[in-house]
């Protein structure tokens, strides 16, 4: 029995030798740059010293994790991170699909090319600059928004003292910055759809909305699923510079804008401990791991080909 299995294994290796050879570069790459450093997860349980390194520093158990839980804010912060990411996934994907479909269907070549390029521009604006712009527009005394309100004889709006409005601002800013990028993936997926299907539908008299509804959208499902799964894999990670820069690290907005990454960074300003940073990262990894295992299993049950692994 055992021997049979071994035989099967070697038979498969022979059978797949070309495929395995083609995988080899990637396997080596990830072994070196990801799996070897992964041994460093151990730092999360150590008081790291330079001479002890990863392998010989004193072991402190779970002590490095404690700081996150001491003041009782971690729950709120974790929740924020989770819900922001859910919103990003929903809003960004919807907008990206919409844009991709429109871009694919419109006929004016120049218009398409130009808008597509323009929509990509925000991706290149760093968060620092976005934050500076936001402050320029939103600050109470001299921001352009309130200057306008003043000119119209309306009440000025105190953005930096109104935490709730920032959920909207952050979601919009995130969409604005990333739409160009995401649209391209969907656009290439639309381009991969068999043109004959559209021709057949046209012959059958389907109008453009029906063609989108019955051909384009279903064909995009695998892409939607895979992009969503990939985003879910980072659902407990917040883009530090986005949250930090766009809000100007404003303490009055923390109730709605604080995510795990900003929270941890702020905690470790005065005691930058490698172990504590690693502990926070591990906390996020474990949560993400749980989520992705659940959703991947669900997707797998629905359609094996759509799952990540």
């Amino acid at each position: 029995m055992k021997q049979g299995k071994r035989k099967l294994f070697f038979k498969r290796v022979r059978e797949y030798r070309q495929l395995l050879l083609m995988l080899l570069p990637a396997v080596i790459f990830f072994t070196i740059f990801s799996y070897l450093p992964m041994l460093g997860i151990g730092i999360a349980f150590e008081r790291f010293t330079f001479d002890g390194g990863i392998f010989h520093s004193p072991w402190v158990g779970l002590d490095n994790f404690k700081f996150m839980f001491l003041s009782g804010d971690i729950l709120n912060v974790t929740k924020n991170t989770f819900f922001y990411n859910i919103l990003f996934i929903l809003v960004n994907n919807c907008l990206e699909i919409l844009c991709a479909i429109i871009l694919a269907e419109l006929t004016s070549k120049h218009f398409k090319r130009i808008t597509q390029s323009l929509m990509f521009l925000p991706y290149f604006i760093s968060w620092v600059v976005v934050g500076a712009f936001a402050y320029n527009v939103l600050n109470y005394e001299s921001g352009s928004f309130n200057t306008l309100m003043e000119a119209l004889n309306l009440q000025p709006y105190d953005f930096y003292n109104t935490p709730k409005i920032w959920i909207l601002i952050i979601v919009l800013v995130c969409a604005w910055k990333n739409i160009g990028y995401g649209t391209i993936i969907y656009l290439s997926a639309v381009m991969g759809i068999d043109g004959a299907m559209y021709e057949a539908a046209k012959v059958d008299g389907a109008n453009i909305f029906q063609r989108i509804r019955h051909i384009t959208l279903p064909s995009l499902v695998p892409t939607i699923v895979i992009l969503t799964l990939l985003s879910l894999g980072g659902i407990f990670r917040g883009d530090f510079s986005m949250f930090y820069q766009v809000t100007g690290n404003n303490a009055m907005l923390y109730s709605t804008t604080d995510v795990i990454d900003t929270y941890v960074t702020r905690s470790l300003i005065s005691t930058s401990e490698f172990g504590m940073t690693a502990a926070a990262g591990l906390y996020q990894s474990v949560l993400c791991f749980v989520i992705i295992m659940i959703f991947n299993a669900l997707v797998k049950r629905y359609n094996k080909d759509y799952s990540l692994f």
């Binding site: 700081f67 001491l70 804010d73 303490a251 470790l268 300003i269």
Partner: peptide
């Protein structure tokens, strides 16, 4: 050495509450 957790948590509170 033995109070890093407390200092981290308190630094956070200072930034979050004390400054505003």
């Amino acid at each position: 050495t033995n109070y890093k957790n407390e200092i981290a948590a308190i630094t956070n509170i200072v930034e979050t509450y004390m400054i505003p």
